[in-house]
């Protein structure tokens, strides 16, 4: 019984280690191999533990080098990869003869792609948009609740995903991921996240782009009133679609920013747009 408890305590310590070291994974982000040193930092305590014996030093060197390879993954979902790799490294150290070290690298590179895709679109797409969409709403009224709310909304899912990622990666690992995929649960989470994210962006387009046109003929014809009868917020949505078109045409970010600023100033000077 007490053995169970001490094992649980030891495992919990590992999960926290995976947790913090996944969050710190971007500390030396570089163009050549991106988060490789961060991953090495994450798995280093595991390697130090399994190759404690001085006569294993060559195995330890090989293991350290194995994790110097290119790596890139969303920090929150990366804890899953770290947990899984750590458990595989433990396996390898126990049965060096019937475990291929290559498989660890293979698992890492096969997981980082999909987990970054899901992680980035979930955290940077949906969660961030939701949190800061609400945050801006409050902040524009001068309410300090805005930034506080935004931080809380960002923190809670990040915390949960990283913690359970570390735990499931280490304990269930491979089986868990195949199960999730085969049941289509990942698709459903992505679908819900996409619907919420897109509806919030749509709402922000109509409430946070205060563009109107002052164009008029005499006192009877005001263009903006005519536009309003066709569709309110026609200018904000058209402007957004125009920008979307520019992005799809692969126009450079610098040029688009210049178009926004210079175009905005010119449109104001010639009395076409007003904010």
């Amino acid at each position: 019984m007490s053995e169970d408890k001490s094992l649980k305590k030891e495992n919990n310590k590992k999960y926290w280690q995976f947790f913090w070291r996944s969050w710190a994974i971007q500390g030396s982000w570089n163009y050549e191999r991106q988060m490789n040193l961060g991953f090495l930092y994450g798995i280093a305590p595991t390697l130090d533990r399994v190759y404690k014996d001085p006569k294993d030093i060559d195995k330890k060197k090989a293991a350290y080098k194995r994790h110097l390879a290119f790596y890139n993954c969303t920090p929150q979902t990366s804890s899953f990869v770290l947990g899984l790799s750590a458990s595989m490294e433990e396996q390898l150290a126990k049965n060096p003869d019937d475990f291929d070290p290559e498989s660890i690298s293979a698992v890492k590179s096969s997981l980082m792609g999909p987990l970054s895709g899901i992680g980035d679109s979930f955290f940077q797409g949906t969660i961030k948009v939701l949190a800061f969409g609400l945050g801006i709403n409050f902040a524009q009224k001068g309410n300090i609740l805005g930034p506080i709310l935004a931080l809380i909304i960002c923190f809670v899912p990040a915390y949960l995903v990283t913690w359970y990622g570390a735990k499931w990666g280490y304990t269930a690992g491979n089986q868990f991921l195949t199960k999730l995929n085969s049941e289509g649960a990942m698709d459903r989470v992505m679908f819900i996240a996409g619907v919420v994210g897109l509806m919030v962006i749509g709402s922000m387009v109509s409430s946070m782009i205060p563009l109107t046109t002052p164009l008029h003929m005499g006192t009877t014809f005001k263009l903006q009133s005519t536009l309003n009868t066709i569709m309110p917020k026609l200018i904000p949505i058209s402007m957004t679609m125009f920008m979307y078109w520019l992005i799809n045409k692969k126009v450079n970010t610098g040029w688009i920013l210049a178009i926004c600023i210079i175009g905005g100033i010119l449109a104001s000077v010639f009395g076409i747009l007003k904010a």
Binding site: I201, M204, V205, M208, I209, P210, L211, P236, M239, T240, M241, F242, M243, Y244, L246, I247, I256, L257, C260, I261, I262, G263, G264, I265, L266, A267, S268, V269, L273, K274, A275
Partner: peptide, 16 residues
């Protein structure tokens, strides 16, 4: 002019 520009820029952000 800058005020108008500052209203155009979010359109770019949303489009991104």
């Amino acid at each position: 002019g800058l005020t108008v520009a500052s209203a155009v820029l979010p359109a770019y952000g949303f489009a991104l």
